[in-house]
Design a protein around this nucleic acid. Structure first.
Length: 485
DNA sequence: AATGAGGGCAACCGCGACATT
DNA sequence: GAATGTCGCGGTTGCCCTCAT
């Protein structure tokens, strides 16, 4: 279809739009594609035409915009432009802290349902929220690039131990595709197609203490003032969730926390377990209804010593979150971004309420903002560049120190200690004390790492392979290189 | 001052759901 | 019931700006 000058004149007169402005608006249309429709940035003249059209015909019938006004834009483009920019009640500007917190909470519950989220934010568009979230992911990925390759880290801690312990522990594992970390077996780099299948973890486990922390802007962590004691044994990272959960497994192991016991516990009382970690009841419901772990064996890649029941039921997944049935035979390999999103998007149904319980919200706040930390997201984004990957900004170090800072105050006035106390099961099970929860939260890592004993691959390359070559656990190897320099 | 990296944002694309013919 | 059109959603890309080196 060719929009001739005569056509434009005729149509614009019908609609009452100045034909000159239409001609002006249509200048520079996408000639290359041979399309009568224009692509790319909108100009004011186009906006004016579209606004006139909406004023006259109302929202909708986007496909007729081109027909009725001669505006060389497709209906979809018009709808998008209107919805994202021209709509009168749109709220522009940075997200407030409250909005950010709500986004985080909602994303934890419903995943990448931007439109549904936007419905809860008057004046905000799904695109706004999506961009906001993706920006966080970018930041997150950047932070990951600078984190410590744990192989190096572990080696530093265990060089003096591994030689004498290697013989006994390595003999315990005969699977060449698995590198044991104590009792936890981890697929080696040989399983290149392997991608952690996060949905096979208890959703809440992934969601609190790891991914939420992951979301925390680097400066938010740095600004907690927890930056004074960097040393060569400190981990520098915001760890990818898939890495973090793996680390947590090692921590469980190192803390003599038996995963099977832990899982038994939340099989018996999912709420206790999840709440102990600050999970909302939403996750509890998932744990108790869809997820029935009874031992570490329910978590692929963790090979418990006994046989266990498998996952029951099918978890509802966001569109991109293709379920995988096993660690080494993924039906698809989601991107890192997807993985992140996945982890942060437990496959839960939309619930009747977005709000976490006050207590879990407290813990969420504690995780996200630490001690009276002013939100440092976009306004400080430029301070969060690669410079923040320096020793002073080691997120995990801050996790460690944060974990040792019992007086950190949540926005609602609770100390970290009190929140932990509130959520720590008072008795029974292997998660009965802070010590067992702390590893989940990244606390006391020094001790645990110090206890860590590589049981295989006691050379540089094997660790390196495990933690960086796969691109799934650790995205960067340049940290060690930097460190050498 | 030049340059590259990263952040933020706008817009497009592909796909699926739904309505209409 | 099939074909077609429309709309909405989620994912991705590209551009521009800022900042650090």
């Amino acid at each position: 279809m060719c929009m001739t000058t005569e056509c434009v004149d005729r149509m614009t007169s019908e609609v009452g739009i100045d034909s000159t402005s239409v001609k002006e608006a249509n200048a520079g249309r996408n000639i290359r594609e041979g399309s009568p429709l224009k692509k790319g940035p909108w100009i004011k003249a186009e906006d004016a035409i579209l606004m006139d059209y909406v004023a006259k015909y109302g929202e909708g019938n986007w496909s007729s915009v081109h027909r009725r006004t001669g505006l060389a834009r497709c209906g979809k483009s018009c709808r998008l432009r209107w919805a994202n920019h021209l709509k009168p009640d749109l709220k522009k500007g940075a997200f407030t802290q409250e909005e950010e917190e709500l986004i985080i909470e909602m994303h934890a519950k419903i995943g990448n349902k931007w439109a549904r989220m936007a419905a809860e934010f008057p004046g905000r568009t799904d695109n706004d929220i999506k961009n906001f979230w993706n920006t966080r992911l970018k930041r997150q990925r950047r932070a990951e690039k600078h984190m410590l390759p744990l192989g190096v880290f572990f080696q530093e801690f265990s060089e003096d131990k591994q030689n004498k312990e290697l013989a006994t522990s390595s003999s315990a594992n005969s699977d060449p595709h698995l590198l044991p970390i104590n009792n936890v077996e981890i697929p080696t780099a040989e399983n290149r197609n392997f991608e952690p299948s996060q949905q096979l973890y208890p959703p809440g486990l992934l969601n609190i203490g790891f991914s939420s922390f992951l979301d925390t802007p680097a400066t938010s962590l740095r600004d907690q003032g927890l930056n004074s004691s960097w040393n060569t044994h400190s981990v520098r990272s915001t760890v990818h969730s898939s890495k973090r959960i793996r680390g947590s497994e090692a921590w469980f192991s190192d803390q003599n926390v038996d995963l099977s016991q832990a899982h038994h516990q939340y099989q018996n009382d999912g709420s206790l377990f999840t709440q102990s970690l600050g999970f909302s009841s939403l996750y509890t419901r998932n744990l108790t209804s869809n997820y029935h772990p009874s031992s570490a064996g329910d978590i692929p890649g963790i090979h418990a010593s006994s046989s266990e029941p498998k996952l029951k039921g099918k978890l509802e997944l966001p569109s991109f979150q293709t379920p995988m049935t096993s660690w080494d035979s993924p039906s698809s390999v989601p991107s890192i971004e997807s993985s992140n999103t996945f982890i942060q998007s437990p496959p839960n149904e939309y619930t009747d309420s977005y709000s976490l319980s006050p207590q879990s919200s407290d813990l969420l706040h504690a995780i996200l903002y630490g001690s009276q930390t002013p939100n440092a997201s976009r306004n400080n984004s430029h301070q969060e560049t690669s410079r923040d990957a320096g020793p002073d900004s080691c997120p995990v170090l801050q996790e460690i120190q944060w974990g040792t800072n019992p007086d950190a105050i949540t926005p609602s006035g609770h100390t970290i200690t009190s929140v932990f106390s509130e959520y720590t099961p008072s008795s029974g099970g292997s998660l009965e004390d802070h010590q067992s929860i702390a590893p989940l939260m990244g606390c006391n890592i020094n001790q645990e790492m110090a206890n860590f004993t590589p049981t295989a691959g006691n050379d540089d390359t094997s660790n390196h392979d495990l933690f960086s070559e796969t691109d799934m656990y650790f995205s960067s190897t340049d940290w060690a290189h930097d460190k050498m320099e």
